[in-house]
Nucleic acid binder design. Structure first.
Length: 200
DNA sequence: GTTATGATTTACT
DNA sequence: GTAAATCATAACG
């Protein structure tokens, strides 16, 4: 079965919410530290640039941290949250439009041994990748991978199985209550009844 | 220069 | 159920 890497142009559409939904079922791949890992994306959230109070780039606020969000779609935006967790986003839209999709959970496919080793767990269970900080740890993604191009050979996304049977649920985003009315936007997407979707 | 804080996880009472 | 861990960044002086 051939899986094609998503083309850089794929990321540059102007509807970040739609892209977040379409990312479900595709496969996030990393080749870091000599270990290749792959995981099917089962949960995402859209962050809609300057009009979204939950987005780091809201109100055209451009800083050193979120600078990469203003670049053209197809880059990785990785940053450290709570001093502990690395969060991985896919930058979308064209240069100057700071949209991004947060990858919140994946289902492990390849390199599971490496993931378990990085996470320090012995069994394959939700502890591996069912959460935005967990999946980056499992797949070896660190802040040094910020601004990585997703058409390279370190981090990329492949087309997944055709997902006719997957039912997509949309609901509110998590951990953004500070964003007031924008916290109510139903911009979190996940695959129904998939056991790897994050808790809370 | 200082200080507050978070797109979370984990451990503990 | 609640709280601690832990630090780069952003906002301010």
């Amino acid at each position: 079965m051939i899986h094609d890497k998503l083309d850089i142009n794929w990321y540059q559409g102007d509807n970040v919410v739609e892209i977040a939904r379409e990312l479900l079922g595709n496969v996030l791949c990393t080749n870091i530290g000599g270990q290749q890992t792959k995981g099917r994306i089962v949960e995402t959230e859209a962050y809609a640039g300057t009009n979204d109070k939950a987005c780091h780039a809201n109100g055209q606020r451009k800083t050193r941290r979120n600078e990469i969000m203003f670049a053209a779609g197809g880059h990785a935006y990785v940053y450290l949250c709570y001093g502990i967790h690395h969060l991985f986003n896919v930058v979308t839209n064209i240069e100057g439009r700071a949209d991004a999709v947060l990858i919140r959970a994946v289902e492990p496919l390849d390199g599971i041994e490496a993931m378990m080793h990085r996470r320090g767990v012995r069994e394959i269970n939700r502890q591996l990748t069912a959460g935005p900080g967990m999946l980056t740890a499992a797949m070896g993604i660190k802040t040094l991978h910020n601004a990585t191009r997703l058409d390279g050979d370190t981090i990329w996304i492949e087309e997944g199985e055709t997902s006719e049977n997957q039912q997509v649920i949309s609901t509110t985003r998590i951990g953004v209550s500070y964003a007031r009315e924008d916290a109510l936007k139903p911009w979190r997407f996940y695959i129904k009844e998939n056991p790897w979707v994050s808790k809370y």
